[in-house]
């Protein structure tokens, strides 16, 4: 194990090309998935927070439920949809980075939606009233309330990125773990561990942990910034 760790550090220090391409693909797939999930999730979170419609309660329940959606189940359903005989099979997306982006988006989307909703509804109602008293239109009022909820919303987005980048089950099913094409950090770790090649697996594991540390550090900083003292 110690030998594996030593070799892993030499891979990182030597900027191994295979390692770099895997990291780059991971960040590209997860980054794109996050953009999609953040846009769609924030929109849904805002809609269920600001409007009242008959199935609103059901939508909120589904959002919360899908936060814990097992990745491999998401991967299975996406596989059935994207496979050649599935409804979107004609698009030929299966075993491509695009399929992995879709899978990660599906997993990250409910996290952004649910945490955004939670952050928005927890904004003090006086903020909405104060905006209205200053002549804000309903849209401007909603934007201002969302601005007040920004730290909670950012926490949701960061948490969603954490979920996306550490995901393995769904992307393994729809991405296929093809070397140089759909192989990302998590799927490489799973494969290399199976093969007994621990150096690359450990190196990627270290990078994933560092990434997780950075994400959590950033999340902590965001939350601290949101907690401003209310009295002198």
């Amino acid at each position: 194990m110690i030998e594996g760790i030593t070799k892993a550090f030499s891979l990182i220090a030597g900027l191994d090309l295979e390692l770099l391409s895997i990291i780059f693909l991971s960040l590209r797939v997860s980054g794109l998935a996050l953009v999609i999930a953040a846009c769609a999730g924030l929109a849904l979170g805002a809609i269920v927070s600001f409007s009242r419609f008959p199935a609103r309660g059901l939508v909120i329940t589904l959002m919360n439920t899908f936060m814990g959606l097992p990745p491999v189940v998401a991967g299975l359903f996406l596989y059935l949809i994207l496979s050649r005989s599935g409804p979107l099979g004609f698009m030929g997306l299966l075993y491509s980075p695009s399929a992995m982006v879709i899978a990660q988006s599906i997993l990250a989307f409910p996290i952004v939606a649910s945490l955004s909703h939670s952050a928005i509804v927890n904004v003090d109602p006086i903020i909405k009233q104060a905006s209205q008293t200053l002549g804000a239109t309903p849209f401007q009022t909603s934007l201002n309330v969302m601005r007040e909820a920004r730290y909670g919303i950012m926490s949701g987005v960061i948490a969603a990125f954490g979920r996306a980048v550490s995901e393995v089950g769904a992307i393994l099913v729809v991405g296929g773990n093809l070397a140089g094409y759909t192989r990302v950090m998590t799927t490489t770790i799973a494969l290399e561990t199976d093969k007994g090649n621990f150096e690359l697996a450990i190196a990627l594991g270290i990078i994933l942990i560092m990434l997780s540390l950075i994400i959590n550090g950033f999340l902590h900083a965001v939350q601290r910034k949101g907690m401003v003292k209310t009295t002198v």
Binding site: I126, Q129, Q140
Partner: peptide, 29 residues
């Protein structure tokens, strides 16, 4: 509505700078 305003008892301070709080009503106009 924009020709009048009400200062609420709890004010409803926005979580930003003092200046941006005051400028808000102008920016939305």
């Amino acid at each position: 509505k924009r020709r009048m305003t009400l200062v609420l008892p709890g004010v409803g301070i926005f979580n930003t700078t003092v200046l941006k709080n005051v400028a808000y009503g102008l920016k939305i106009r």
